Simulated assay, not measured.
Amino acid sequence: MIKYIISLSNEKTTMRLGSAVAYSCQTTCSGCVIYLYGDLGSGKTTFCRGFLRALGHVGNVKSPTYTLIEPYTLLHWTVYHCDLYRLTTPEELDFLGIRDYFNHTALWLIEWPQRGNNNLPMADISITLQYYKNERQAETNALTSIGMQILTRLGPLKETLA
């Protein structure tokens, strides 16, 4: 199992972490599911913004709190950014037809995955963003072989985040 704890001193370092993970994804896999945990304001959407911009998205990246799923069709990828904070029951995902989106070539960024229970694909990586002293930190965990490939590639990049 690969696990990193990375200090995030500000918004820019959180975006750089998102960029580094995106870079690792695009060079090691065809698809990936990333679960993002953390309190409100801990940097989950900021991470997603860095991730999407690294893959070529040039527009705004807003939290899909009200839409639940925001798809981004990029040159080489489709990225689905989900925010399940306002989900009242996991079954709501079925009403949205979320299973129709699942495939092995898409990248998934899922905020608040614990609210989706068993209605979500298994995560390759989990990232927990939390407050620590006067800054934030990210704990990354590889949960599958794809996740291990991505975090192995991330290893040398994590030192460049500060």
Rank of each mutant, 00 (worst) to 15 (best):
K3E: 15
Y4H: 15
I5W: 00
I5P: 00
S7V: 05
N10E: 11
N10H: 07
N10D: 15
T14C: 10
S19F: 03
A20I: 02
Y23G: 00
Y23D: 09
C25W: 03
Q26L: 08
T27M: 08
C32Y: 01
V33D: 06
G38N: 10
G41H: 05
G43W: 08
T45P: 10
R49Q: 15
F51G: 10
R53H: 15
R53M: 12
A54E: 15
V58H: 09
V58K: 15
G59I: 06
L68F: 15
P71A: 07
T78W: 04
Y80W: 11
H81I: 11
H81N: 05
D83W: 06
R86L: 09
L87H: 02
T88R: 14
L93C: 04
D100W: 02
F102K: 05
F102N: 04
N103A: 04
L107A: 05
L109I: 08
I110Y: 08
I110E: 06
Q114V: 07
G116W: 01
N119I: 01
L120D: 06
I125E: 06
Y131S: 09
Y131T: 12
Y132G: 02
Y132H: 13
N134S: 12
N134H: 11
N134K: 04
R136T: 04
E139V: 15
N141S: 10
G147M: 04
I150H: 06
I150F: 04
L151Y: 07
T152S: 14
L154K: 04
L154S: 06
G155P: 00
L161W: 11
